[in-house]
């Protein structure tokens, strides 16, 4: 096991636990401060679970009523990108968990490296999401309310011709072949797909803001064995983002 590293010039300025400069005056000691913050964070994670639950229930209602539409629609999602993004998020969860350890041991440099890798993974995830989204937009697998949507019942002839011309109209003709009711349910899949992955993607973006803030504070030397609360709580948030994706990947991409 590694020894506690107290060489960092920036992280160990406080004398001891009871008199830490990081201790807010309304707490008795750093333990109480940490436990209070951590409990608050878990309560927030509870609200996050409930927040996503609404959309998961929406998904479950539509899928249980129209499994065939779900099976048909899922073939238009690229499993390869979904799998790569799963790996990207798992690796980022690993590096952020390692960064917490680094912060607890006062290894500021290693902590910063791990946080930067986590941030890069988050950026990579969004780039892949962008590639996937832009393809969906080009072929017209989007909300039925949009003008260039294959599911728009009042689509203009011009928009329809444009979609039919894109990539030899491969997707266009498959959707065209469906009955109106079938097309409605397949369209619902993509509406729910964009809501779920969009809300998740928004959480990734928020996570990138949090990670950047942690990196900047880390560079300033704010964190160390007596003050790693922000790193710990930020990491918990990042893990929740990973947890949601762990369920989204099989639910959206792997419908056989």
């Amino acid at each position: 096991m590694m020894e506690v590293n107290t060489q960092s010039p920036t992280s160990s300025q406080a004398d001891d636990h009871g008199h830490s400069k990081h201790l807010a005056h309304h707490f008795d000691d750093v333990h109480q401060q940490f436990d209070t913050g951590k409990f608050g964070m878990w309560m927030f994670l509870l609200t996050e679970v409930m927040f996503f639950a609404g959309l998961f229930v929406l998904y479950a209602v539509y899928r249980s009523n129209h499994p065939e539409a779900w099976q048909f629609a899922a073939q238009f999602l690229d499993t390869k990108w979904g799998a790569i993004n799963t790996v990207v998020l798992l690796v980022s969860s690993f590096t952020v968990a390692w960064a917490v350890r680094n912060a607890q041991l006062g290894e500021t440099r290693k902590m910063l490296i791990n946080l930067v890798i986590t941030l890069l993974c988050a950026g990579g995830f969004m780039v892949i999401k962008y590639i996937e989204y832009s393809h969906k937009v080009h072929v017209g697998l989007v909300f039925p309310q949009l003008e260039h949507s294959l599911f728009n019942p009042n689509i203009t002839a011009e928009a329809s011709a444009k979609l039919a011309a894109y990539e030899q109209g491969e997707v266009f003709h498959q959707i065209e072949a469906l009955s109106a009711a079938e097309r409605n349910w397949v369209g619902k899949f993509f509406s729910i797909y964009f809501c779920l992955t969009g809300l998740h993607g928004f959480h990734v973006l928020a996570g990138m803001v949090v990670l950047s803030w942690l990196i900047l504070r880390g560079m300033r030397g704010d964190f160390g064995p007596d003050n790693f609360n922000a790193i710990d709580f930020g990491a918990l948030y990042w893990h929740i983002v990973d947890l949601v994706w762990i369920f989204l990947f099989p639910l959206l991409y792997l419908i056989n």
Binding site: V87, A97, P225, D232
Partner: peptide, 25 residues
């Protein structure tokens, strides 16, 4: 390890868990 405020996870455990997660994926 650490200041005793909270449990410090070993890199070995973290790596094993990552490996398990990748295998499960």
């Amino acid at each position: 390890e650490g200041s005793g405020v909270s449990h410090v996870q070993s890199v070995k455990v973290l790596a094993i868990v990552l490996g398990a997660l990748l295998v499960l994926t």
